[in-house]
């Protein structure tokens, strides 16, 4: 165990000196910031309403469902709406009815329609207590694009873990240092696990950083950890296979990059292909990872469904492992 950490610690030390490895390690954080810049954050899309301060009764009602700011004059409300973030104004018309004022660039589904629904509910004088529906997704104000991006990034990060593993194995091969390890009192198993640790920890730390930075603070992190660990196993296996079979870093990286095709394909398939054809993607572990991550990111906490999807990921992983095990064993004997 201690020696396993020694192996891992050495890999970390070497990776911190290598530009490509540092880039891979920082990638999740860079992506998180990128996602925040290009898609509205969760807080931005918690619908912000701008009202006139005289409409106190209306403000009190909306406050249960949205962030409400009040202004003295119609002009001030209009100024507020015109600012960059997503604020929707609700203002009285001459005839006493209220209308919705938007800037035009707000996400229609998440912000404007939500505001319209709220307005309608207020006008009907509907109360939460009146509803007998279980409000599962109430408060799910994350735009689907952001959800998809974060989900796909989590898959991407686990692939990057495999890429680091393969880089670290190629390094040992190029320096021919495995023979030195072989005449030290450390077991092959400890070495393999030590080398694998990176493929587990990078995805875990990276995904946690990613969801926290992008604002998915309400999710069940235990669920996220479960899905990420299950997803990382495939990358670890592929990382080893590529590392053991490649003779230089570039070949290893190219080999790992091949994993991105089925990954991206599965994400697109899950998102865009009609329900009737979804079965076409059932073979892909990434498809099930994506589904499982979707459940996690929704924050809805459906363990049974989550465990089913994660279980399928593990089953496919086991099949891949069974198929690759001889190659790995042979590769390990050679190094």
């Amino acid at each position: 165990m201690k020696k396993m950490l020694t192996i891992f610690g050495r890999d970390v030390r070497v990776n911190m000196k290598n530009f490509m490895a540092v880039f891979i390690i920082l990638f999740p954080i860079v992506m998180a910031i990128g996602i925040n810049l290009f898609t509205p954050g969760i807080n931005d899309t918690t619908v912000n309403l701008a009202l006139l301060s005289k409409d106190t009764e209306m403000a009190a009602y909306y406050e249960d469902f949205a962030k409400v700011e009040t202004f003295a004059t119609q002009g001030e409300v209009e100024n507020r709406v015109a600012q960059r973030d997503n604020v929707v104004g609700i203002l009285p018309e001459e005839n006493g009815n209220y209308y919705i004022l938007t800037q035009g660039n707000e996400p229609k589904e998440a912000v404007v329609e939500y505001a319209q629904v709220l307005k309608a509910l207020y006008e009907l004088d509907a109360q939460v207590a009146d509803s007998n529906a279980v409000l599962h997704n109430f408060g799910k104000t994350v735009p689907p694009l952001k959800n998809t991006l974060v989900n796909a990034m989590i898959l991407m990060i686990s692939i990057l873990g495999g890429m680091l593993i393969s880089l670290n194995i190629v390094e040992e091969k190029m320096d021919n240092t495995v023979s030195a390890i072989n005449v030290a009192p450390i077991s092959r198993t400890a070495w393999v696990f030590g080398k694998s640790l990176m493929g587990l920890l990078l995805p875990l730390v990276g995904s946690f950083a990613l969801v926290l930075i992008t604002g998915f603070t309400y999710i069940n992190f235990l669920q996220l950890a479960a899905v990420v660990v299950a997803s990382a196993l495939i990358s670890i296996i592929v990382g080893f296979v590529q590392g053991l079979n490649a003779d230089d870093m570039m070949t290893a990286v190219a080999g790992i990059k091949m994993m991105m095709l089925p990954m991206i394909g599965s994400v697109i398939g899950a998102e865009l292909v009609s329900q009737k054809w979804q079965w076409c993607f059932y073979w892909s572990p990434f498809y099930w990872m994506y589904k499982a991550n979707g459940i996690v990111l929704s924050g809805a906490g459906e363990w049974p469904k989550l465990l089913l999807d994660t279980g399928l990921v593990l089953v496919i992983t086991a099949l891949i492992f069974a198929y690759q095990a001889p190659r790995i064993r042979k590769g390990l004997e050679k190094v």
């Binding site: 390094e171 320096d175 240092t177």
Partner: peptide, 11 residues
């Protein structure tokens, strides 16, 4: 001690 030296270049 090996005939061909084998140490970590990056360390």
């Amino acid at each position: 001690s090996f005939e061909q030296s084998n140490v970590y270049s990056a360390l």
